[in-house]
Nucleic acid binder design. Structure first.
Lengths: 222, 222
DNA sequence: TCAAGTTAGTTACATTATGCAACTAACAAA
DNA sequence: TTTGTTAGTTGCATAATGTAACTAACTTGA
């Protein structure tokens, strides 16, 4: 039979702040590591949660008060050594959301930290965040994933900055615009604005409604 | 606190047989679904297994008697509805191995079945296998993953057939050979052989030793 | 011994994708 | 109305990819 194993869900909630990829940490209100910042997480409730995604949505709601437009299972971290309480399983999800939604929520226990400037975190949370960054970096190469880090509407120059933050490298402007065009997930919005200064204002775009909650992959032959 | 949750590991062991992608099923020796074919799996032993990978290796060894050259975590399937015993978590791995290794093992409880000709399986195992096929199809587009389905040595025409079985489409010969060359994971082996008929024999290749157990990804800019 | 059949592997070229530099456009501020 | 700054486009050089047609190496059978 199965031994008693601690079963939890943790969430890597990523946002863009000042053109940098950042993770949202939550101050722990219980032992172990009470009062330290760590990934938002919690126990799976076999009574309340129909599946893991349910648990992730519930926990995210409790800790941050929001339902992100993008939520995907990342990986499961398990073993005897990762939690002082003993053998544990953590099913980890990663979520993408517009930074403004978090900042406007003003949840007191939350901290935002750039993923490349993290200090040592409890459990194996540094390793988990590294896996999430790997995943988003990989998917950003051929998908519209980073769009979920932008708000409802955004300019292409801003979206390019977001892609660059995800990928950790600068991109060519013309190539980027061509690629977004051929992905076909964006549409212009009538009023253009985003006039942030003494220069030509940028056209605003939004995700086409049919892509509001899914990935469009660009399939490329071998 | 956490409720008691059944914690298991299941494995999608993929091989190529007659140029088709096939999955290895194991006859269940216990309830539920006793005597039916399903994915090889078993309970996590908190005492014996240091982590999930440990458990996967142990279970694979028990059920098939082999250690595959490639083993990667696929996804975790969990919920109240997937197992008649109640709320369960299954951390699923997928493994790739040369078909000859399985066929020579002659483990009596094993069945090989093409992934596109599966009947209804116990639990959510059809869904799990579909996820594994998705993953390998995706990774086959830009990595050397399918090489682990070939044996120690293989010809390029045979490797191309394997890639085609993984991707579910035919490939261009010249493009395929160019891509394998630029991936840089293969080396020729002196004696060429694989003369299977009245025609020119094919050069044999093998994975360079530094790639025997890892993926070489071709990074492609956005 | 040599022609026919079959698969392996290469070459040459057309087509498409990508990267870059230089351009024009649209605004604010002075 | 000139200047500075960012948005967006155009044209072209270079690189990647797909295709057809080739040559190479073998076995078999006349």
């Amino acid at each position: 039979m199965s031994e008693p194993i601690i079963s939890t869900v943790d969430i890597v909630l990523l946002i863009i702040q000042e053109d940098r990829l950042c993770v949202t940490l939550s101050n722990r209100d219980k032992e172990p590591y009470e009062n330290q910042d760590a990934l938002p997480g919690g126990y799976i409730h076999a009574q309340a949660d129909r599946d893991c995604l349910d648990a992730a949505v519930r926990i995210l709601q409790q800790k941050t008060g929001l339902l992100p437009p993008y939520l995907e299972q990342l990986k499961t971290f398990a073993g005897a050594a990762r939690d002082p309480r003993g053998w544990s399983i953590s099913v980890v999800y990663f979520a993408l959301v517009d930074a403004d939604l978090i900042l406007s929520a003003t949840n007191p226990g939350l901290t935002i930290c750039p993923v490349d400037a993290l200090r040592r975190l409890p459990f194996d949370h540094n390793e988990i965040i590294a896996a999430a960054v790997d995943r988003i970096r990989n998917k950003s190469q051929y998908s519209s994933l980073p769009c979920y880090l932008a708000g409802e509407t955004f300019s292409l120059p801003r979206l390019q900055k977001i892609y660059e933050a995800c990928l950790g490298e600068t991109l060519n402007k013309v190539s980027f615009r061509r690629k977004m065009d051929e992905l076909g997930v964006l549409e212009t919005v009538a009023g253009q604005t985003e006039s942030t200064g003494a220069h030509r204002p940028a056209q605003l775009y939004r995700l086409k409604s049919e892509f509001k909650n899914q990935l469009k992959l660009l399939v490329r032959g071998l």
